[in-house]
Amino acid sequence: MIAADILLDGLFAAVAAIGFGAISDPPMRAFPRIALLAAAGHALRFSMMNYADVDIASASLCAAMLIGFGSLWLGRGIRCPMTVLYIPALLPMVPGIYAYKSVFSLIMFLQSLNDPGQGMQYMQLFFLNATVSLSVIALLAAGATLPIFVFNRRAFSLTRRRKIDHPTPRPPKKDEPATEPDVEPRNPGE
């Protein structure tokens, strides 16, 4: 039952990611990988929140990091930059209900100016929901961007053709530590 819940969650997240991704005109070849990343990320967040009692912000950060590293790994095969894969995959994790509740409580606060007690309650609700939405969105973006800093040379050359296609083959250098500073275009790594 738990497995079915998690799978279903992943499935709906995948559909959501494909649809929201389609607005930004991604290459057709990227859709399967976007779906996979979104499903994995959202299912991870769902499991952490429901079965491990983690709060939404930390769970989102973990899921975003999973999506970020996943896009680094999957982007290579189809020559897509990381952002093309991970931005659509992150969209199903946008905390929509919290955002909605912030708007709703703000409206209700403005409607209850004559009743300070009730007004304070709505103000409190507004800050609670707005804080959650803002921190989740910031953590989502930051978490998915982290891999770019860790593996910047690999992340910058995702759209490059593989060595086989090069007219002049280069000696294979695999994941060597970046001894030279990252002046990427001058010493292309992979």
Partner: peptide, 11 residues
């Protein structure tokens, strides 16, 4: 987009 938002509602 329609399907995506419907799945989002489910989530």
């Amino acid at each position: 987009v329609g399907l995506a938002n419907a799945s989002f509602c489910r989530l």
